[in-house]
């Protein structure tokens, strides 16, 4: 799992961490059930604040990719097929970026997705 943080990027550091972990889950270099490095350890490795790492982990938890448990740290989910789900999330991120680039509003994007869903 390679994590690169570019301070010049418009993407917040926490999201950059989330993106790297998501990519690692998608390409199976982190297995379902595997424990991620402790937030404190990863923060020390990257030279960032612990809260930055925790924000990234929190985002992955919202996406259903990892579970955060008190005392056990962050563990990749064992159900919900995390690799496929991670790839799906990457697709959604791409979609959002593309739509923002076109200047679409959130409602317009959701309408387009609904149209896509009803068409299949």
């Amino acid at each position: 799992m390679l994590i690169r943080l570019d301070p010049a990027s418009p993407l917040p550091l926490g999201d950059q961490i989330a993106a790297a972990v998501r990519g690692a889950i998608a390409d199976h270099s982190v297995q379902p059930g595997e424990r991620l490095p402790a937030a404190r350890t990863l923060a020390n490795s990257l030279g960032v604040n612990v809260h930055t790492v925790l924000r990234g982990y929190q985002r992955l938890r919202e996406e259903g990719l990892i579970e955060l448990r008190r005392g056990r740290g962050a563990v990749v989910s064992t159900d919900g097929a995390p690799p496929g789900r991670a790839r799906l999330m990457e697709g959604i991120r791409g979609l959002v970026t593309e739509a923002r680039g076109l200047g679409l509003s959130d409602e317009e994007v959701l309408d387009l997705v609904r149209t896509g869903l009803s068409g299949v």
């Binding site: 799992m1 994590i3 690169r4 943080l5 570019d6 424990r35 990863l42 490795s45 990257l46």
Partner: peptide, 13 residues
């Protein structure tokens, strides 16, 4: 290539 100010880490079990 690491950009200026870019921090990076690699970890694997």
């Amino acid at each position: 290539t690491l950009g200026k100010g870019e921090s990076a880490a690699w970890t694997r079990s």
